[in-house]
Amino acid sequence: MANVELLTFNNGIKMAAIGYGTWRAPDEEIKRALNLALEAGYRHIDCAPVYLNEKAIGKILKEWIDGGKVKREDLFITTKLPAFGNRPESVEKNLKKSLADLNLSYVDLYLMHTPFGFPKPIDGQMAFHPNGDVVLDLTTDHVAIWKKLEEFVGAGLIKSIGISNFNQRQVHRILDNATIKPASLQIELHVYFQQTELVEFCKANNIIVTAYSPLGSKGIVEFLLKITSKQRNVPDLLGIPEVKAIATRLGKTPAQILLKWIVKRGVAAIPKSTNAGRLRENLALFDFDLTTEDMKMIKVLDKGIRICTLDFFQGIDKHPEFPF
C-alpha cells in the first residue's frame, strides 16, 4: 500500500487523508479506474447512490476482497444518504441498498449527502413546480435523521457517521443534539474556496473535514449542460501562476501542490481521476513538504468562488436553510 497519512476521527477510527472520488464515472469507466486506483494504493473510496455506479464499484471491491488482494478491514468506504431519502423512515432502505450494491456488510463512513431533501419521487422522477423549480421537502429534520443514523452505528452497519454540504449553523444543530458526534464533514474546498472559518470550527469540535472538488471540477460543466443547458465558467486551478511556480521549484505537479496544501491543513481530499499516472501522482504527496511561505502564498489566493453551487436545482434559494 502507498505511504498515505492517516487522519483520526473522534471515535478513534482512522481514514487515509487522500481518497478516491467516484462522482459521475459510468460503470465501465469506474471499473477500470477503480482497479487502477486500488493497484496504485488507494484504500479510501468515496461513493454515493446519486453517482449511479455503486453496483459497479461493489463488483470490483468483491473481486479484490474475494481474490485476497485486499482485506476488508484495510478499506475505508464512504457512502451517503441521498437527498430523496432525507427522512428518518427512509434511512434503512437507502443504507441497505448501498450495502447490497457495494457488496459490503458495513460502511466505514455514512454521510447525510445534503442538508435539504426532496419528496419521495413519483414514478422514479423528481417533481417540479409549473415554473420549473424543483419541489423541495421543507420539513427535512436533520436531528431526527441523525438519530436514525446513530441507531445503525449501534447495529454495526456503519462505523462512523457524518454530514456533507452542511454549513456551520447546521453542523452546530447536529452537535447540540447528537449522542454520537459527527466524525466528518465533506464540503467543496479548494484554493479558490478555502472555507477557513468552517474548517476552524470543525477542528475546534474534533470533526475531520474532507474536501471534494479539491482540484476544481471541470465535470460540473458537462453535468450542468446535460440537466439545465446552462454554461458555467470553471476556474483552472492547475494554471494558477503561484501554484505552478511552487510546483516547478519542488519538481512536482500543480495538482500535487494543491492537494498537499489541503492535507497540510489537516483536511482530507478525494480527487477523481481515471488516468493511471495522475492517480499515482495524486497519492504521492508524502515525500515532500510545503514551506510556511508556500502555505501563506496559497492562502491569499482565496477568492470565495464556489463551483458546485447547487443552483442547478432551480428554486433551491427559496429553501429556509439556504444558503448551504
Rank of each mutant, 00 (worst) to 15 (best):
V143F: 03
M126G: 05
V135R: 01
N167G: 08
G162S: 04
K97H: 00
A127S: 15
Y106G: 03
I145R: 12
V91F: 12
P121W: 14
D141Y: 14
D123I: 14
K96D: 04
V91P: 15
L109H: 10
D101L: 09
V171H: 01
V153R: 00
D137W: 11
L111H: 06
F116G: 03
E92N: 09
Q125T: 02
K80C: 08
G156I: 01
E151R: 00
N94H: 14
I161Y: 12
A100L: 01
P121M: 09
D123G: 13
P130L: 15
D101R: 07
L111A: 11
H142P: 04
G154S: 13
G154E: 15
R87G: 13
V135Y: 00
G162I: 09
K120V: 05
G117S: 04
P88C: 04
P88L: 01
A155G: 02
K93T: 10
M112K: 00
V153W: 03
N131S: 08
K159S: 09
P119W: 13
A144T: 08
Q170Y: 08
T140K: 04
V107I: 04
N131P: 05
D141C: 11
K147N: 06
V91K: 07
G85Q: 01
E89P: 01
N167V: 09
F166G: 14
L138W: 11
D133R: 08
I161A: 14
A100M: 07
A144Y: 07
N94M: 13
K147G: 08
L157S: 07
R87W: 03
T114I: 03
L104Q: 06
G162P: 07
E92S: 13
E89M: 03
I158F: 08
T79E: 02
L138K: 15
G124W: 07
D133E: 14
D141F: 12
D108V: 02
L136M: 14
A100P: 06
V91T: 07
G132P: 12
A144H: 04
N165M: 11
F152R: 03
W146Q: 05
L109G: 09
L111F: 09
G162E: 08
A127V: 15
H113I: 05
D108N: 07
E92A: 14
A127Q: 15
V153L: 00
L104F: 05
A155P: 07
V91A: 06
T79D: 05
P121Q: 12
G124K: 12
N86C: 13
Q168E: 11
K96C: 06
D123Q: 09
K148A: 03
V153F: 02
G162K: 07
L81E: 07
